[in-house]
Amino acid sequence: MSYSLTAADKANALSLRDDERFNHFVARVCEHQELWILTDEHGCMMLTSDDDEDCIPVWPHPDYARDWAVGDWSQCKPEAISLQVWLSRWVPGMEEDELLVAVFPTPDETGVVVDPHELQEAIGRKQTLGRRN
């Protein structure tokens, strides 16, 4: 279940630079053990990066994903994926299919695009730091 998100929290997160939003995403996903994608009757929403690479956008909360569900994406709905399922199934599958991850893109389409393994490593580092504190 998603955490409570105030309008101020949302505005603050969306005003962060792409790299800061990436870190915010990693922190929230580690804290709440889930991430969000957009899906429709055809499956998971995919984007094409500026470098013409296919990627799956992910968000730390359904409200951010819902902000994307307009225009061509208006039929899409936020869907939660547990962190455990993401790491055990999605990361290997995306690597096999040569897909990238668009981490916490904003409605104006800015965000960090990374290899799934790179995101997995960032999550692993955050989890290790969390266990030490």
Rank of each mutant, 00 (worst) to 15 (best):
R21M: 04
T106P: 13
T6H: 07
A69Y: 05
R125G: 01
A102E: 03
E118P: 10
P62A: 08
D52C: 15
D108N: 13
E41S: 12
N12W: 01
M94E: 13
R66F: 00
D50F: 08
H61N: 15
S88C: 02
V29H: 05
H32F: 08
E95A: 13
C76L: 00
A7H: 10
E31R: 14
V103H: 03
S82I: 06
G71Q: 03
P92F: 01
L38D: 05
D63F: 03
R132E: 12
L87C: 07
D40W: 00
I37N: 14
F104E: 04
P105A: 03
G43E: 12
E121V: 00
N23M: 08
R132W: 01
F25N: 07
V103Q: 02
L35G: 10
A27M: 02
P57N: 04
E79D: 13
E109Q: 06
D97P: 10
A11K: 11
L129Q: 15
K10M: 10
L47C: 06
Q127S: 11
K77I: 01
V58M: 12
Q127D: 09
L100P: 03
V85K: 13
L5I: 04
R28E: 12
V101R: 07
D9V: 02
V29E: 07
D18P: 08
R132V: 09
H24Q: 12
H32P: 14
L119N: 05
R66H: 03
E41C: 04
G71D: 12
I81T: 14
L83D: 05
E41R: 07
Q120M: 03
Q84M: 04
T106H: 02
L35P: 13
V26N: 06
E95M: 09
L47P: 09
C30T: 14
R131F: 03
E31K: 12
Q84C: 08
M94H: 11
D67V: 09
T106A: 01
R132T: 08
P57S: 01
G124N: 11
P78K: 11
P60A: 00
P57W: 00
E121W: 00
D63C: 08
V26G: 06
M46C: 02
G130Y: 06
L100C: 01
L14K: 06
A69G: 12
P116S: 06
Q120Y: 00
L35Q: 11
W86R: 11
D52N: 15
Q75I: 09
K126T: 09
L99G: 07
P105R: 08
H117I: 07
E41A: 07
P107G: 09
L100N: 04
R21N: 04
A27N: 08
D67L: 14
D72I: 10
D50N: 15
C44A: 14
D108S: 12
G124P: 13
C55F: 00
D72G: 15
D18G: 02
W36E: 15
E96Q: 14
Y64E: 14
L16G: 04
V101I: 11
D40T: 04
S4R: 11
K10W: 01
A122L: 06
W73K: 13
E20S: 08
G111W: 05
K126D: 12
P57Q: 06
F22E: 12
P78G: 15
D52E: 15
L14W: 02
V29Y: 01
E53I: 02
